[in-house]
Design a protein around this nucleic acid. Structure first.
Lengths: 160, 160
DNA sequence: TATTGTTATACTCTATAACTATA
DNA sequence: TATAGTTATAGAGTATAACAATA
């Protein structure tokens, strides 16, 4: 209420929240284009990373973390299994559930994925010195934590 | 190539590009929830702002800036016109095209929208001091400019 | 002949809910 | 009876392309 309309207007559209949304969409799109060279979509890349971090989880839990209904997870996992990147193993303790794991080929592809991710990081932050790059990361991490976001996971990835 | 795998992994998932995508999706979703109280979706809010900035443009140009095909723009504009927020006027010079304008009610709603946007900005950046907030904005603006993003517009808004 | 707005159609995507098997 | 995975179906949302009016 202390500033005039003109100022408020430029604040909203040039403010940090708007820039975050704009840059976030841009970064997500650019990342999707990059990993298309590996024949991967962002949710597929997300699953590979999740399986590397915590192998052997059930489809239901993985589906929940990816923000998709279990029914949609089935054909989603089918394709990656068909490409030999992941495998379903019967859980001997509870034979209703499938435990999911990366295959050897999945591990190899994940390594390539990480290289692509590093290149993406460099390109997105090309405008910044390495000192500013660190500054930005620290600030973003603080904001993310305060906003209650889980490190390493975000369901906002586009499905296409 | 200079760092080991462990380091690369944490870099990718905790790096600035990933945080941008994660926080961007979060900020966009939070903003969408906020403006739902005004019965607006993000693309609708975008159109109101575009009409305030440059009134009288044709549907085709507006559709292009919003990243939607002209055919989809029709029902999109229909609803806002039905609610009395925008109006189509025949362009006397070229009677094929419609020039779009905000109505008085549209201007009023836009004022409320700006208040909501300011509150959104405060909440998203609640973790930062006002000095850090400024720092973050400057860094983001530099990155956005270097990445070739147009100030004030982003087509990444969800359609829902 | 080209362009603006519009309408119609066809298609993709997605979620809901029914189904099978294990518990 | 409840839960994991799966399958089937139906609905929403979208783009492509045909159409009418104007240039």
């Amino acid at each position: 209420m202390s500033t005039n309309q003109q100022t408020d207007r430029s604040r909203n559209q040039g403010g940090a929240a708007f820039l975050l949304a704009q840059l976030g969409a841009h970064a997500a799109r650019a990342f999707a284009e990059r990993i298309a060279s590996l024949d991967l979509t962002p949710p597929q890349a997300g699953l590979l990373r999740m399986l590397a971090a915590t192998p052997g989880r059930s489809q239901r839990r993985l589906a929940e973390d990816l923000g998709m209904p279990p029914s949609r997870f089935v054909p989603f996992a089918d394709e990656l299994e068909g490409r030999g990147l992941i495998e379903r193993r019967k859980n001997p303790d509870d034979r209703r559930s499938h435990a999911l794991y990366l295959t050897e080929r999945g591990v190899e592809l994940l390594a390539e994925l990480r290289e692509v991710g590093a290149a993406h990081e460099r390109d997105v932050c090309a405008a910044l010195s390495s000192d500013e790059h660190r500054q930005l990361t620290v600030l973003l991490r603080r904001v993310a934590e305060q906003q209650g976001l889980t490190p390493g996971v975000h369901p906002g990835y586009r499905s296409s």
